[in-house]
Simulated scan of single mutants.
Amino acid sequence: MKKKVLVLTLILVALSLVLVTGELGAQAKKRYYYIGAVNAHPYFLDAWLGINYTKKALNVDITVLGPNDYDTAAEAAAIEQTIPKKPDGIMVPLWDSAPVPAIKKAMAAGIPVVVVYTTVPDNGALGYVGLDNYQAGYDTGMELIKRGGTSGKLGIIMNAGASNTEAKKAGALDALKGTKWELVVQAEDKANTEVAIEAAKSMFNSHPEITGILGLDSSSGTGLGRAIEELGLQKKKMTIIVHDREDVTLDYIDKGIIAATVEAKTAIAPYLAVLMMEDYNKRKKANDVPISVNNWDSGVLSFPQFVYVGSVIIDKSNVKNFLRKAMPKATKP
C-alpha cells in the first residue's frame, strides 16, 4: 500500500512539474505591441515584414493595433487601452503629440515604450528607433544636386504638418542652400495617393517652369508618376527625387520617370526596438548599467535616446532588388 501511495505521489509531483514547466514556457514568450496609425498605407508593408521577422527571430508575440487612417487620437486611445494588459513593451510612431500623454502614462506604469519611424520632442518614451528624417531630407537635396545640377525651379509635394515630412523638408532646403535652386511651389498630398495625383497635376499645370521635384512622403512618388502620365509629360526634362518604395513608385523609376527614391530601412526598426526592450527588461533596476548610483532614483534611462536606421538610394541600377514580388510576403501581423 505504501508503495502505491509513493508511486501515486511521484506521479502527482511529476505532473505538477510538467504543468509548472509548461506554464513557465508559456510565460517565456514576451508580449509586445505595435500601436500606430495609417496602418493601411502601403508604406507599412515594410513594418509588417520587420515585425514578422522579429517575432520569429526573438521568439516574441507582437500585436498590431491602431487605426487604418490618419487618426492620432485613435492611436492614443489604443495605447491607453493597452496599458492595463501590462505588455512587455510598446512601439509607437508619432506624427504629432496626441499620443504623448498615453506614452507617459504607460512609462509611469513600468511599460517601456519606444517610438519608431517618426517622432516629436518631449515624447516621454525610452528612445527613438527609425529614420533621421532631417538627414534623409538633406540626402534628398544632395541627390537632386547630384542628378539635376545646382540650379532650377523646384516643386515640393508632401504631407504638410506631419513631423517626419516637415523634418525632411527642412533638411532638403538646408542641402540646397548656396545653390540656385528656387522653391516655386509646395503641393499638399495628405499622404493619400489620389490626393497626390490631383495635387501633382495642379502643380504641373500652374508651374510649367518646374525642373526639379522632391516628393517627401510615400504617396508622392505614385502621385507624381501618375500625373506625369495623365498629362503626357513623360518627355519633359525634370529631375524627380521621392521617398519610400511603393511598387508603383519603383515602376516609375524603372521607366525613367522618377530618378531615384530615398528609402528608409523600415523593416529593421521593430527588430532593434524589441531587441533593446528585451535587454532593458532583463536588467532594469536589479542589474542596470552603472550610469549613476541608482539610475531609477536619478531619473536616468539606460537606453539610447536615438537609434538611426539610415536610408538607401533606389534608382534604375538596383530597383529590381526592391520589388515586392522579389521580397517575402508582407502580411499584417
Rank of each mutant, 00 (worst) to 15 (best):
M1H: 14
K2G: 15
K2F: 15
K3A: 13
K4N: 13
K4D: 14
L6H: 13
T9F: 14
V13T: 04
V13S: 02
S16A: 08
V18K: 11
K30F: 02
K30N: 06
R31H: 06
I35T: 04
I35W: 07
N39G: 02
H41C: 07
Y43E: 12
L45C: 12
N52K: 06
L58W: 00
N59F: 03
D61Y: 13
I62F: 01
V64N: 01
L65N: 01
G66L: 05
P67K: 07
D71R: 05
D71I: 04
A74N: 06
A74D: 06
A74T: 15
E75N: 02
A77H: 02
A78H: 07
Q81E: 05
P87R: 04
D88C: 06
D88Q: 14
G89F: 06
G89R: 06
I90L: 01
P93W: 02
P93D: 12
W95I: 08
W95P: 07
P99T: 00
K104F: 02
K104N: 02
K105A: 06
V114W: 12
V115R: 02
V115N: 14
V116L: 13
T118L: 11
T119W: 13
L131E: 08
D132L: 12
D132S: 11
N133R: 04
E143N: 11
K146I: 01
T150R: 13
I157F: 03
M158F: 10
S163W: 08
S163P: 05
T165S: 08
T165H: 03
K169W: 08
K169V: 13
A172L: 03
D174A: 15
A175F: 10
L176I: 07
L176A: 08
K177E: 12
G178A: 02
G178C: 09
E182Y: 14
E182W: 14
A187D: 09
E188V: 13
E188Y: 04
D189P: 05
K190E: 15
I197Q: 03
A199F: 08
A200N: 06
A200E: 04
H207E: 11
H207N: 15
P208I: 05
E209L: 09
T211V: 09
T211C: 04
T211I: 10
G215K: 00
L216M: 04
S218H: 11
S218Q: 10
T222A: 05
G225Q: 07
E230D: 10
E230V: 08
L233R: 00
Q234A: 06
M238P: 00
I240C: 10
I241C: 05
D251R: 14
D251M: 15
I253D: 03
D254V: 11
I258A: 04
I258W: 05
A259V: 08
T261H: 12
E263P: 09
A264R: 12
I268V: 13
A269S: 11
Y271G: 03
M276A: 08
Y280N: 00
N281M: 07
R283N: 11
N287V: 02
D288R: 07
V289R: 09
S292H: 01
W296A: 00
P304K: 10
Q305R: 14
Y308Q: 12
N318T: 08
N318A: 09
V319N: 07
K320N: 15
F322I: 09
R324P: 14
P328H: 07
K329P: 11
P333Y: 04
